[in-house]
Nucleic acid binder design. Sequence first.
DNA 1: CGTTTGCTTGAATTCTGTCAAAGCAGGTGG
DNA 2: CCACCTGCTTTGACAGAATTCAAGCAAACG
Lengths: 192, 192
Amino acid sequence: MYDRFFQHFTGKVPLSADERALIQSFLSVKKIRKKQYLLQEGNVCTVVAFVDEGALRSYTNDSEGKEHILQFALEGWFISDLYSFLTGEVSSYTIEAIEDSELVLINQLAYQELLKRSPSYQAYMLQLITGAYIALQKRLTTTISLSPEERYQQLIGLYPNIVQRVSQRMVASYLGLTPETLSRIRRRLAHE
Amino acid sequence: MYDRFFQHFTGKVPLSADERALIQSFLSVKKIRKKQYLLQEGNVCTVVAFVDEGALRSYTNDSEGKEHILQFALEGWFISDLYSFLTGEVSSYTIEAIEDSELVLINQLAYQELLKRSPSYQAYMLQLITGAYIALQKRLTTTISLSPEERYQQLIGLYPNIVQRVSQRMVASYLGLTPETLSRIRRRLAHE
DNA sequence: CGTTTGCTTGAATTCTGTCAAAGCAGGTGG
DNA sequence: CCACCTGCTTTGACAGAATTCAAGCAAACG
């Protein structure tokens, strides 16, 4: 159940059996079905979720009600609104399962307690947030400095598995395009 | 010299005189003139800079050589490419002073040593990276979900001091617009 | 005082979004 | 198991918005 999570963990930080047991006692497992929400806009984000199986997305709605996807998360990825999770402010994001999924959850109490009690967990979390920061910086950089076509090509180059599992309208939303424009870009690229 | 830095520090984490002395021994001060570089694209980012006086910006160049500004940093802010700083990979960003500035620098050795030796520093750095993450998330969200006009209005609402000290072409670059388009947006807003 | 740099404005162009329609595919319920 | 329905993708025509190119003007700088 928690195997993939601890595989990810020990890939970054070594872990004794005792400490693993301590950490595991603070975690929980949640199954979530396609189209169900893990977080809804206007609520506080109370968990950090590790994706053991399935796929999720986080998005925000603009003033016209249109969705803008911030992130996809497949197996082995984390998803959360760390801002809301850490500050307790309400979130402006929604996190939704795009496939039936199985998650390992860390709630806010577990997060704070484990930071105090487990040095390995502390080291792991620092790496996790650093990794989230780096991923976000890359996302912002490509968003502001590449053309729509370049953004699409980079996405299929870096994450071909995501494009296969996610509908084109979601890819379009992630890239900041309408589905129509993405369809035309794909046609142009297919005709070389 | 280091006063403003430690003021910022103790605003987040309490600090004994001994620990302050230890930390200070690892820091250095650098003066940098307008238009000089703190980091150039293609080099490794070797420092995290705290702005004691002045203003800087970080930007990246796209395939057509156009600049896209990622961040401004005024007094009391940090600026760096944390990705390059932490991983040792070369940076795709340039950091440039836009005013004569005075900086407090932390290099990579100091960063690692202080993490080992100073618990307060460790706690401070965790908050710093978390803060950087949160700022980046806000930046990305406004970039992908607001119109150019909304982005401009939010910027002058949140950071009126930045708009006053930075040229309009830089504001335009930060907002992802040409200077001409920003000029037209300002005209529309002035005519209500 | 001359040169450079930044801001504004206009006109033409290009790209993306919008609206609409049609074909397909997958899922659901009878 | 099949018919239907809903949502996704594609395509076309059109409108709208931003970029590009060009010029003029003001302010800053050496």
